[in-house]
Every structure is written in structure tokens, then in C-alpha cells.
């Protein structure tokens, strides 16, 4: 996985991969995130936990530019993602610039969201060919490799609707990886799966964590998995980080009362 980026902001190697600065998000009158600050280092894998409605998923959606930022700034490798400071003003960046930076980010969704009008292979090569400009042969060869990694080589020409949920999700992971993202966002990727299909998907993700240095942000209810793959865990409640720790500390010796309650309920 390549880590060198040439960006207009002239990023350097020691810059954090992701910086959230004073991030807030409101849906109508409902405040979901409120003055949130945190950074994620290069290659770091961070799990976000917390009760539903605490804003975890919203953070991933803001990073993927699926939602508009109400206040604050997000920086990727030092480059502003959607809004930038110009003196005292906060300006929205033009779509073109956003697109350039967004290419460094990939996302896997809870509901897989494969394109039903394309085969497995077409799903994977679509963006590499038409967005990154790779040749079809090159993209196809890489798709085959990725499908090998997720254990679905034989399904390369299958139709997504003929696959099980777990298989679809593994294809979705391959599709996201085909874009060679520097940041991978995983939004409750096993929540929509039948229990017996969860293991395969998590195994694939463990592999990805072991073999690559992709920065990952995960929202998950699989606490064992979170403990295994992540470097750091952030506990969210009502749009704020209320506790932050290494996974073995967070899961064994949480300090905050809300964290204790939450972990007791899910573990």
C-alpha cells in the first residue's frame, strides 16, 4: 500500500492522518456532534464505541463527505477536507478539491451496498477504471487478487444478489480496497449479517489489519474484534468522547461510569 501522497497542502510524513477540529453536526435542531476534537495517526486503527445515537456513524459519514459539516474542520494529511480556514472565515471547498482528497478514503457500509446492475468483478473494477484511470486488464488482475484475499476468487463473475450477506460484504471490502485507500472506514460491517456469517468477514478484516498499514476507523459492536485489531478505543456519548484508552484498558478497566454501564450491556 503506497503511503506517499502529493497534495496541494504539501503534507509531511509526521502529520496525523486525520484531524477533527471542533467538529459539530446538527440535524435540524438535533445536535449529534458537539465540538469534537481528536486525531488519528498514520496506520493507526481506532474503534469508536458507544450507545446508538451517540454520533459514531456520523463521524464516519462526515469523513466520507456523505454529510455536510455544521461546524469545525476535518483535515486529512493536513489538507482540509470540506471546509478550510481563510483568515477568520470558514469557507466551503469546491467539489473538485473535495473529490481529490476523498479519493484517499474508502468506506464499507452496514448494508454492503453493492451495485446490483454489475457482476462482482465489475463492482470492484468500476471505480479503479473510471475514477483512477487504470486499464481494465490491470484492474481485473487486481480484483482477482483481492478476491483471493477475501476468499471469493470463484465468485468473480457472479451476480451480487446470488451471494450470501457475508459474501457480499467481503466483496464490498474488496471493492473499497481496490481504490487503494489510505483510510478505511468500517461502519458496523457485521451488523446486518446472520451470526454464522460474521466470522468470515471479521477474519478478512483481521488479515487486512495484519498485512497493510491502512489507517482504519471502525464502528462495531464486536468487542472482541475491536480489542484484537485496534490500537485505541474511543467511547462516545451524546456527541462527545468521554473516554479514550488502549483496548485492553478500555475493555477491562474502564474508568468512566457511562463506559462501565455500556460495556456491561454489550459484553
Amino acid at each position: 500500500m503506497s503511503t506517499d501522497t502529493t497534495s496541494p497542502g504539501g503534507s509531511t510524513g509526521d502529520q496525523p492522518r486525520i484531524v477533527m477540529e471542533d467538529v459539530s453536526k446538527k440535524f435540524g435542531k438535533n445536535t449529534v456532534l458537539d465540538g469534537l476534537n481528536f486525531t488519528v495517526a498514520r496506520g493507526e486503527r481506532v474503534t469508536l464505541i458507544g450507545p446508538s445515537g451517540s454520533g459514531k456513524t456520523t463521524i464516519l459519514r462526515l469523513l466520507m463527505t456523505l454529510e455536510d459539516l455544521t461546524g469545525g474542520y476535518i483535515y486529512i494529511d493536513g489538507d482540509p477536507l470540506t471546509y478550510a480556514k481563510r483568515g477568520n472565515r470558514r469557507v466551503k471547498l469546491p467539489n473538485k478539491e473535495v473529490t481529490q482528497i476523498r479519493k484517499r478514503i474508502g468506506m464499507v457500509f452496514q448494508q454492503f451496498n453493492l451495485f446490483p446492475n454489475m457482476t462482482v468483478c465489475e463492482n470492484i473494477i468500476e471505480a479503479p477504471v473510471h475514477v483512477l484511470g487504470q486499464s481494465k486488464d490491470e484492474a481485473r488482475a487486481k480484483a482477482a487478487d483481492l478476491l483471493d484475499q477475501v476468499g471469493l476468487r470463484d465468485k468473480i463473475d457472479a451476480h451480487p444478489t446470488s451471494l450470501s450477506g457475508g459474501q457480499q460484504q467481503r466483496v464490498a471490502i474488496a471493492r473499497a480496497l481496490a481504490m487503494e485507500p489510505e483510510i478505511l472506514l468500517l461502519d458496523e460491517v457485521t451488523s446486518a449479517l446472520d451470526p454464522e456469517l460474521v466470522g468470515d468477514v471479521l477474519e478478512v478484516l483481521r488479515e487486512v489489519a495484519r498485512k497493510t498499514d491502512i489507517t482504519m476507523l471502525l464502528v462495531t459492536h464486536e468487542m472482541q474484534f475491536a480489542q484484537d485489531v485496534s490500537h485505541r478505543v474511543l467511547m462516545f456519548d451524546e456527541g462527545r468522547v468521554i473516554e479514550e484508552a488502549k483496548p485492553e484498558v478500555m475493555f477491562n478497566n474502564p474508568t468512566h461510569e457511562r463506559t462501565k454501564q455500556f460495556l456491561q450491556a454489550v459484553l
Binding site: 466520507m64 463527505t65 456523505l66 473529490t99 476523498r102 479519493k103 478514503i105 474508502g106 468506506m107 457500509f109 448494508q111 451496498n113 453493492l114 451495485f115 446490483p116 446492475n117 454489475m118 468500476e126 471505480a127 473510471h130 475514477v131 471493492r175 473499497a176 481504490m179
Partner: peptide
Amino acid sequence: VAKVQWESTTALSMSWPLAVRRVIWPQ
């Protein structure tokens, strides 16, 4: 066409014309 399909195209950095032509229109 499901909203999540649009979201997938954003996650893959596809442009509006590309997303419509290749993903949304065929569905």
C-alpha cells in the same frame, strides 16, 4: 434508486455523471 447506492458512489469517489451513467441509471 436506494439512497445508499448514491452513498456508495461517493465512497468510491465517482463523479455525478459517472455515478448516474454507470450505477444509478442502469438500476
